[in-house]
Every structure is written in C-alpha cells, then in structure tokens.
Nucleic acid binder design. Structure first.
Lengths: 103, 103
DNA sequence: TGGCTACTTGACAAAATAGCCAAATATTCT
DNA sequence: AGAATATTTGGCTATTTTGTCAAGTAGCCA
C-alpha cells in the first residue's frame, strides 16, 4: 500500500511544475518532439529534456524515436480529465476572488 | 493561462508527497483531526501540521476548529476520482512488472 | 489562575530540484 | 568520412523542500 503512495507521489511530483504542465497541455493535442516543446516553454533544450525525463520516469509520457527526433506523447489515460477538472477549480477560485474584490 | 498552470502546479506539488497522500486517502472517509493524521503517518506533530498547511494553501483541504482540535477535510471534488485512477494505473504497472519477472 | 492538550510557527541542517553551460551520443545528409 | 541537427548527460550553483526541536498560541478544566 505504501508502495502505491510512493509511486503516486512520484506522479504528482512530476506534475508539479508549470513548464511540465504547459508541455502536457500541448501533448493533449497529440505527440510532439522535444524541439516543439522547447519552443513552447522557452527554456534551454537540456532543461526541457530533463523535464521530459521526469515525466517519463513517472510513467506520464512515452517516447519514440523517429529519425533524429524523439516524440513524446501522453500515456496516463485519466490525466486529461483531472487536468481539466483542476483547471475548472482554479478558474472558479480566481473568479470568486475577483468577485470578492469587487465589493 | 500561465496563471492557471502556476496554480495547477501548486496543487500537484502539494499532492506530491507520500505522507500527504496517505493523509488524503484517510480523509476520503471523512474529516480527521491533526492527531488522527499524525498517528497515521507517524511523523512529528509539527511536520504533520506543515504538511497539512501545504495542502490547505493549495486549496485541497479545508480546516475547522472545534474545541482544541482542528479538523481537516477534502475540498477538491475531483481528487477522489484521480487518486483512484492513478492507483489503478500504478497497480497495473506493478502487475505488469511482476509478470515480466515471472518468465 | 495554572496546567493540560492540540496545534502552529521559527530556526536550522540535510536532501532534492531547477536551470544553465559544455560535452557526449545518435542520426541523417553530402 | 565529415558536417549538421536533435537530444541526452554531467557538472555546477541557487533555490526549495523535508524533517526535527524548541518555543509560541489557543481552548478547556480544575
């Protein structure tokens, strides 16, 4: 059971970085190579590569080499739903805060 | 949009620790006071309190003081589903690995 | 009031993480 | 083979996180 919590924490820790979330959001539209993702987040290529290896180690993405490129894609089926759900929750919170400031 | 990713990362980062996940799993059955949760994870009370404040800051749990106790409970509606889903994914992976070693 | 229990906060050391640069690897093209 | 492109890895520093102990706050009961 504790082994489960460790692995689960591993997944969440991997999800816990803005750049990684930006990349994952992009991957919702389909696979992307590292250079695509680098262009998206604007960090050093080596940094992007390390972020991707964190996601891969957690089993959130898969990679496949084709030619000189390596393409990453989502593997954790339920991720999309939860990403969408937390986004909604956050939007609701932001809206609530904005409303509070209004008065 | 990036503000969303920041807030989202904040939530995931908060979820990314085994002790916090153990406590959250316990909270699925209903609210618990800090001492209950401390007994569960077996860390110093101050450490448990800090873990809980991380969860609270991320908006994952709510707290309510009643008498000398403070009771924490889940607030992020979609969390349960995702916790269950990642658990399943991990179990599947562990099973697959076990099967691989069998041969 | 004083003492007890429940919890939080501050200070601090140890470990993990994020970012960059430079170097290594692998594949394709000439 | 040699050059060019795409990606990973190692080394390094700065920052963040985790955990403990000690001290502080708050509610309850004698």
């Amino acid at each position: 059971m504790n082994q489960i919590r460790e692995a689960q924490a591993h997944i969440f820790k991997a999800l816990g970085h803005p750049s990684r979330l930006i990349m994952l959001a992009a991957l919702r539209d389909g696979e992307k190579c590292v250079c695509d993702l680098q262009a998206l987040v604007g960090l050093d290529m080596s940094t992007v590569s390390k972020h991707l290896s964190v996601l891969h180690a957690a089993g959130i993405v898969d990679k496949e080499k084709r030619g000189t490129n390596i393409y990453y894609r989502l593997t954790l089926c339920c991720l999309e739903t939860f990403l969408a759900c937390t986004e909604d929750a956050i939007r609701r919170r932001l809206a609530a805060k904005a409303k509070l400031l209004e008065d």
